[in-house]
């Protein structure tokens, strides 16, 4: 018992607290000057905006993929099911260089999109693509077990009461899986905000344009601007702790609702 807590403190809690202590050492004005500078604000905007967009795309397609995995039979289903976890297993740097070589203007997909005037690599759109890759399994793995457990009888009850298939989905199934979907969304969003490895290759990293917040921290560090890095990290930590709290509240809500 004691060992557990000591180890937790040594590896996780004490190191994390340094951020807050260091940030506190800056004083309020100092903190605002670096942590909320124009460059930092545009980095937060990019990180949070692209993470939100990617999580939204994943909410739709992740739900669709969870649905076909939970409900339908098709050849190679087991294989597809296993493949969904690829982003968890594939090192982010590998994903990063793979995505940029696909979406660069001479890449397989980039060369198809270029004539349409769509540039993905080295733009915020590229960040979204990378975050879609990273976030997909969070949604699928949150929703899939809930969908599989959802009894057929509830859907049949809706059918016998005259509901169309779409009404059954939107009014019976969707509310039932909403907490799981939201949990997955929050997890994907939180991961997306902090993601670094897969993004930096494809993002372009132009200050004020395509520079994500984690990259800004690294940049500050490379310039030995420790206070700047700390302030930004502090803002991100607060954001991710809020997300964590939200996820826990969502899970408590789920547990309460699924209690008979």
């Amino acid at each position: 018992m004691g060992l557990t807590i000591v180890w937790l403190c040594l590896i996780v809690l004490i190191p994390l607290s340094t951020i807050f202590l260091r940030a506190a050492g800056l004083g309020w004005d100092g903190f605002v000057a670096v942590g909320l500078s124009a460059r930092a604000l545009s980095a937060y905007k990019l990180s949070f905006g692209t993470a939100l967009l990617a999580a939204s795309v994943n909410a739709v397609f992740g739900l669709l993929i969870a649905w076909i995995l939970a409900r339908y039979e098709f050849p190679g289903k087991k294989f597809v099911d296993a493949a969904v976890d690829l982003p968890f297993a594939l090192p982010t740097a590998v994903a990063g260089i793979a995505l940029v070589s696909l979406y660069a203007e001479n890449g397989w997909i980039g060369s198809l999109l270029a004539p349409l005037g769509i540039r993905v690599a080295y733009t915020p759109l590229g960040v979204v693509v990378a975050l879609i890759f990273i976030g997909l399994p969070f949604i699928v793995r949150s929703v899939q077990p809930v969908l599989a457990d959802l009894g057929a009888d509830v859907e049949e009850a809706a059918a016998t009461l005259g509901a169309t298939r779409w009404q059954t989905f939107s009014r019976v199934i969707l509310p039932a899986i909403a907490p799981a979907l939201l949990t997955g969304f929050a997890l994907a969003f939180a991961r997306g905000v902090g993601e670094y490895g897969s993004v930096i290759f494809i993002a372009g990293n132009m200050p004020y344009k395509s520079e994500i917040a984690p990259l800004l921290i690294v940049t500050q560090l490379e310039q030995f601007d420790y206070p700047g890095a700390t302030a930004i990290a502090c803002v991100m930590l607060v954001a991710s702790f809020s997300m964590l709290l939200l996820v826990n509240l969502l899970q408590a809500w789920r547990a309460k609702r699924s209690a008979k």
Partner: peptide, 21 residues
């Protein structure tokens, strides 16, 4: 004819009530 168009009432074994309503 699918169930939705038969105008029947069906009571399920485990009630199948909509839990979120």
């Amino acid at each position: 004819t699918p169930a939705a168009e038969r105008q029947i009432g069906f009571v399920f074994q485990n009630y199948a009530l909509f839990r979120h309503m």
